[in-house]
Amino acid sequence: MTEHRSPETDTAQPSLAQRAGERFTAYRDGEPEAMGQLVELLTPLLWQVARAHGCAAHAAEDVVQEVWLRLVDHVDDIREPLAVLGWLVVAVKREAWRDGRAARRSTYDETGTVDPGAVDEDPESLAILTERQRTLWAAVGELPDRCRVLLRLVAFVDRPDYDQVSTALGMPRGSIGPTRGRCLDKLRRSLAADPRWVDA
C-alpha cells in the first residue's frame, strides 16, 4: 500500500521551494504569467519574513514589493531555480534590517525598545485566537530571537524546504529537520509544561 500516504509525508507532492523553482524556470523560459503565479505563491511567506524581522506593517509591504522588483532584474543571477525561495528570503531579511535601522534613526524612543514589527497584542486582537493559539504564540514569543524567526518561517514552508530557510536565516542546515532541533525542542518543552496547552 505505498500509494496510501498522508499529505504531510507524500514525497511526490512538490514542496513550496520546488513549485517556486518550477514557476521561476517557466518565467525564464518565456512564460511571463509565471512570474505572477510565483508572486502569489510566495508573497504570504515573504510578508512573514519581513514582519518577523521587525518591519512595521506598511514598511513590510514596501519591502516585499521592492524585493520582487529586484528579483526580476536579477533573474540571470539565479542559476539554481530551486534556490529562488532562499534568494527571496535573504533579500527580504536584508531589506527589513535596512528598514529597521532607518526606522530606529527616525523614531525617538527613550527606552530603546522600539519594535516596529511587534504584532498588536492587545486583548482585542488576541481574542481572534483560540486559547491554544494564544498559549502557543506566547510560548514562541519567549524563545530566543533566532528560534522565534526560524519557527515562524518554517511554519509557512514544506519540510524539504527547512534547510533552505535555515540557511537563508544564517542558521546551520539541520537546525530543524530531520531531527527536531533545539528551537522546536525548546518550544515543545515550554508547551508541555503549560496546562493551557496540554488541556486545550
Binding site: 511554519a155 530531520p178 527536531r180 533545539r182 515543545r188
Partner: peptide, 21 residues
C-alpha cells in the same frame, strides 16, 4: 530530545503556529 526525529507532534505544532501567525 532535540536530536530526536521530527515527528507528527512537531508537524502539528508548526501547523498550529502557521494558522496563528
Amino acid at each position: 530530545t532535540a536530536t530526536g526525529p521530527f515527528d507528527s507532534t512537531d508537524e502539528a505544532v508548526l501547523r498550529e503556529l502557521r494558522e496563528t501567525a
